[in-house]
Simulated assay, not measured.
Amino acid sequence: MQREAFTEALAKEGFTEFVTVQYEAGAREEHAHPFEAKALILAGEIYIRVGDEERLYKTGDVFHLPANMTHTERYGPQGVTFLAGRK
């Protein structure tokens, strides 16, 4: 999915805040966000674990996390950059 199409689609879903996020290779401990998030991977890769299930997202993929969803994140060897819509 392209950046412009992504932001247009999310705006129609009520997402009003868009931020570009970048992390170096590594991991974050289990946490949750007080906002719903949908993100388009712009570069690199991210593994997101919710419960016992871990999924890999690469450039062009989109992930969605409901507000307050406890999860862990692990970033690939090149890190990750993504554009996130929040509401």
Rank of each mutant, 00 (worst) to 15 (best):
G26D: 08
G26Y: 10
V50F: 08
M1A: 09
L42Y: 06
T59E: 15
K12Y: 04
Q2C: 06
V19K: 14
T7Y: 00
E45H: 10
Y75P: 01
T7S: 03
Q78A: 15
E29C: 08
R74H: 07
L65D: 07
T59N: 04
I48Y: 01
H33Y: 12
A25P: 13
A32L: 15
R86P: 00
T20F: 03
F63D: 02
A67E: 11
Y57L: 05
E54Q: 13
E13A: 15
N68V: 12
T59D: 06
M1L: 07
K58E: 10
V50K: 13
V21A: 10
E30Y: 07
V19N: 14
P34V: 07
R28D: 14
I41A: 08
A39P: 02
L40W: 05
A32T: 13
V62N: 04
G79Q: 10
M1V: 07
V62E: 06
Y57E: 00
F18N: 01
V80I: 11
K12A: 15
L56M: 08
L40C: 07
T7P: 00
F35T: 01
K58M: 01
A11F: 02
F18H: 04
G26T: 03
P66W: 02
G44I: 11
G85Q: 03
M1S: 11
E36C: 14
F6W: 03
A25V: 03
E24D: 15
Y57W: 06
R3M: 07
Q22M: 09
A84M: 02
R55A: 12
A9I: 01
L65C: 09
F18D: 02
E30M: 10
G79T: 09
H71F: 13
